[in-house]
């Protein structure tokens, strides 16, 4: 079971031994003289929740956008299930689900209709019952399913985002600041959902500022600064205050 592999402190600080779903090889992105990302090497295996920490402009979102193919790398490769994103844009997206900081859906449609549409775009034609149970599984209250999304909170929209990931049976989940702006209860619920996905063997790559959430939820943590990955560790190796100390040390350098 992959979860045993990743919980082993001896191994998790290294690259995982199972085939990673997400892999960056010397991945770089520059905008003229500005290096948004430099020589990133990173891999996320099934059952791994990899948290990318770093200040604004560290290259976290750039990394996620490169895996999604939203931007093209200047050099290096972003691989999803061993496929180069630059060459296999559509094939790689079949493996991916994306939850941005604000999951934006069609406001005039219901949660169910949004899920049906995006699942269908991903090639998954589900019956109404299946769509309902997926939304419930993603944590959405059943009475909200047929309400218009314009009345949803950020947390509820995220749950629809998770439901899309579940419906398309994504093997990798890319999250960009998912817990910012969520109250602690909603954050906890979200972490529980991620844990559920991890247990299913989904590889999760999450960009976040939230050190506490990274420590609690993540299995591995990477610290980024100025477009570089400056540290990488397994959360099981860390004590409660260790992560904050390490992070701040790196920020001072």
């Amino acid at each position: 079971m992959q979860s045993q592999t990743v919980s082993d402190p001896e191994v998790t600080s290294q690259a995982p031994t199972v085939r990673p779903i997400l892999e960056a090889r010397s991945l770089s992105k520059s905008y003229g003289e500005t290096h948004a990302l430099s020589e990133l090497d990173l891999s996320v295996a099934p059952g791994d929740i990899y948290c990318l920490l770093g200040p604004n402009g560290a290259g976290k979102t750039t990394t996620i956008n490169l895996f999604l193919g939203f931007i093209a790398p200047t050099s290096g490769q972003a691989l999803v299930a061993d496929l180069d994103v630059a060459e296999h844009d559509r094939e790689t997206k079949a493996y991916l689900a994306y939850i941005p900081e604000q999951v934006m859906l069609y406001r005039n449609l219901t949660g169910l209709e949004n899920l049906e549409y995006f699942a269908a775009l991903a090639g998954k034609k589900l019956e109404v019952d299946q769509l309902r149970s997926t939304l419930v599984e993603a944590g959405l209250q059943s009475e909200a399913i047929d309400r218009r999304v314009s009345g949803y909170s950020k947390g509820m929209r995220q749950k629809v985002g998770i439901a899309i990931a579940l419906a398309k049976e994504a093997t990798a989940l890319l999250l960009d600041e998912p817990t910012s702006g969520l109250d602690p209860k909603a954050s906890n619920e979200f972490s529980a959902l991620l844990e559920g996905l991890r247990e299913r063997g989904v590889a999760v790559l999450m960009a976040t500022h939230d050190l506490f959430r990274a420590k609690e939820t993540g299995t591995r943590v990477g610290i980024m600064r100025h477009g570089r990955l400056v540290a990488e560790m397994s959360t099981s190796e860390l004590g409660h205050s260790d992560l904050e100390r390490i992070y701040l040390n790196h920020m001072r350098e």
Partner: peptide
């Protein structure tokens, strides 16, 4: 502007087709 393009683009479809 409403943000749905990001979710659409993360699906295995060509945006031109959509």
């Amino acid at each position: 502007e409403q943000g749905t393009l990001a979710l659409t683009l993360s699906q295995p479809v060509a945006v031109r087709d959509v």
